[in-house]
Design a protein around this nucleic acid. Structure first.
Lengths: 215, 215
DNA sequence: CCTACCGATCGGTAGG
DNA sequence: CCTACCGATCGGTAGG
């Protein structure tokens, strides 16, 4: 054996189980944080490299471009939302039960991925046209999911018949999405508890239930 | 007549009535649009100057720095929110009526200032420490306003006694703030109509009212 | 993964 | 408000 080449940089490949993450995963993780804190254009590749203990140019041994990094972060978030809601579209339970579950899952994705969710909500407009179109597609699918859920609830009779389907879906989406601005891990309530309180509020309303004359 | 000096750049000074806006106001307006579309770091001063038909360096005859521009846009938005809600804190009407009015005003500020509202929500973290502190202060005041409104509603008996005050305020804020992502002028509903539907939903809930046995 | 570097662009200034 | 320019920094590449 003569001069051995530089040690191959670990398993590489895709998501390996256990706490040992590949360099690519580390890059994505730190990039999500920097992009969420400083914005896509406000975070430089040299900042990113420095946090990983390497030189700016060395990043390009692992990724092809800054924009590819953004695309992967945003689409990764989109896929998580999609995966969380997909099977609920064909769930046979009543719409109010499914609304509770959808909000819990949606809010859990936000809370468990605060950084990439923030990048998703703030930076998706800076994507190239193709990636932009895919994310728009995703948004439309999610909106359609909640509108269909509301419409089904009306048909089932578990929701009021006079609901404005579009505005109701918008209100639900506001609740679960806006959480990225205020939810912080370690707070008083878990994501499911937040979702449960939100669902209680949305389903029952703020007004007291009509009182049967207090004796 | 020989070579006349370049025409003095119009009235200058502060907000003039009528459609003729000062150069400073034009700069603020275009900057709000560019910052909202491309982000603060993604929009360059040369982009801004080009849209106003001038050279990059010429902007500095009107403003002191890019960051001063951001500060003024963000604080301008904060002041608008504050002005819209301020007198409602001491309004004597019942809490449900005041909630309707607060949501209508809040949503109107968002809808009538979509660009600066977007800059406000996305870029306030990039402010210098002093401006950052002032905006944080504003956020706290607004949250406190909605929490107090909810708490008063409970005391008055117009809201359920078992409400989680903080989560209820968060839900209200989610609805009115998130509108910056989807509301577009010229749509089906005016800001007040959106707010009215949201308030109906929040006050009455999604569930049908308890039915007196259909005859 | 590093050194060394590329052209482009950034916010901002001097002097008119 | 323009011309001309400053130093700094940007994303990215060549060659090892």
């Amino acid at each position: 054996m003569t001069d051995s080449p530089p040690a191959p940089p670990a398993p590489e490949k895709t998501a390996s189980p256990g706490p040992a993450r590949s360099r690519r995963e580390q890059i994505h993780e730190v990039a999500s944080r920097l992009f969420s804190e400083r914005g896509y254009h406000g975070a430089s590749m040299r900042d990113l490299a420095a946090e990983l203990g390497m030189q700016g140019g060395s990043l390009y041994a692992h990724i092809s471009s800054k924009e590819a990094l953004l695309i992967e972060i945003v689409e990764g978030a989109a896929r998580q939302f999609e995966a969380a809601l997909l099977d609920l579209a064909s769930d046979p339970r009543p719409a109010d039960t499914r609304l509770r579950e959808a909000m819990a899952r949606h809010l859990t994705v936000v809370a468990d991925n605060l950084e990439s969710a923030t990048v998703f909500f703030h930076e998706w407009k800076h994507l190239s046209p193709e990636a932009y179109a895919r994310v728009t597609q995703w948004r439309d699918t999610t909106e359609a999911f909640y509108r269909e859920l509301v419409a089904q609830g009306i048909r089932e009779g578990v929701f009021r018949a006079d609901l404005d389907v579009k505005m109701t879906a918008n209100l639900i989406l506001s609740a679960v999405n806006w959480a990225y601005t205020w939810y912080r891990p370690g707070g008083r309530l878990s994501p499911r508890e937040v979702a449960s309180r939100y669902a209680d509020l949305l389903l029952g309303g703020l007004r007291p239930p009509p009182q049967e004359a207090t004796p």
